[in-house]
């Protein structure tokens, strides 16, 4: 079942086109990772899905209803921005009371449970907490509203490894138990790789890639190969994204299924042959290189 759906969405700030004709879907119970270069439009996209910004063109629906200025729907959609907001002077307890008033689905019992888990003082002013602790408070309050859709902008920034694991575990429990739908934007690709099942890469306001993570990984491979006799014929048969030569060993990034590549390469009787799946970080770098956003070795 489709939970979040964007159809031909465009967004402009003054004359600057931030998002250009973006369409995609996120299924219910899926964890979707939104990646992209700096300034690609990730935060703008998330804010529109949360119903904070209005798109200039196109349609954004959550559970088939338009989200913008739809308070009933927003009861079930939670957004944690990259800088979580709390009222100045409010303690955690006061913030919780505010949330309980606004959200019908507020779960007080869960609030106490998470209090035990996170161990933060409820009577302390939120603004007095450290950056990481403030983010924990944001998760704490948000998860107690039992959202159907959770939108996170750089969620793990500033959290230590232990807390990060706790938070991830909480999110996964909600996905497993209640089929919560999650959208995460992050630059920490390792983090995304572990937790997401779908990936979209945004660049200059449009998607350059949008796929199931496992499909993505099984469709591109890193190959190390050495041949007894050099032959360009082999390279012509492969769909090569990137090619390097180190001594007599060729390093290739090749698109295609594992079996097909295996068959082609084995027919050339290589002396050395290794085929490795790519990490998400490598996929990101090579895909970005493909649209002219490459890492260059510049001497300064």
């Amino acid at each position: 079942m489709v939970m979040i759906k964007l159809t031909n969405v465009s967004k402009q700030f003054d004359k600057e086109m931030v998002l250009d004709n973006v369409s995609f879907e996120v299924n219910k119970g899926s964890i979707y990772g939104l990646l992209g270069s700096n300034g690609a439009g990730k935060t703008t996209l998330l804010k529109m899905i949360a119903g904070i910004l209005k798109q200039n063109h196109g349609e954004i629906t959550i559970n088939t209803h338009p989200i913008y200025e739809n308070p009933a729907l927003k009861q079930t959609v939670m957004f944690i921005p990259d800088l979580p907001f709390t009222f100045p002077q409010y303690t955690v307890k006061q913030m919780a009371e505010f949330y309980a008033n606004v959200y019908d689905t507020w779960d007080q019992e869960r609030f106490h449970k998470l209090h035990d888990l996170l161990g933060l003082d409820v009577n302390r002013k939120v603004a007095r907490f450290s950056k990481g602790m403030q983010r924990q408070v944001a998760f704490w309050l948000t998860l107690c509203t039992m959202p159907d859709v959770l939108i996170l902008d750089e969620p793990f920034d500033g959290l230590d490894a232990v807390v990060r694991q706790k938070i991830k575990n909480l999110i996964i429990q909600d996905v497993a138990d209640r089929e919560m739908t999650v959208m995460i934007s992050s630059h920490n690709l390792r983090e995304i790789e572990d937790i997401c099942d779908h990936i979209g890469i945004l660049h200059h306001g449009s998607f350059i890639l949008e796929k199931d993570l496992d499909d993505l990984k099984s469709d591109i491979h890193k190959i190390q190969i050495a041949l007894k006799t050099e032959s360009d014929e082999l390279f012509d048969q492969l769909e090569i994204v990137h090619q390097e030569k180190r001594g007599s060993v060729h390093l290739l990034i090749v698109r295609g299924g594992r079996e097909d590549i295996d068959q082609i390469i084995k027919s050339f009787n290589p002396v050395v042959y290794d085929l490795l799946p790519l990490t998400l970080e490598e996929i990101f770098v090579y895909e970005m290189g493909g649209v002219g956003y490459a890492i260059e070795n510049i001497l300064v």
């Binding site: 694991q165 996964i172 497993a176 496992d214």
Partner: peptide, 16 residues
């Protein structure tokens, strides 16, 4: 559900 929680892995991945 249980395995997802124990391993902190996306339930969809386990289902797959």
């Amino acid at each position: 559900r249980i395995l997802a929680q124990q391993l902190t892995v996306n339930p969809n991945t386990i289902q797959k």
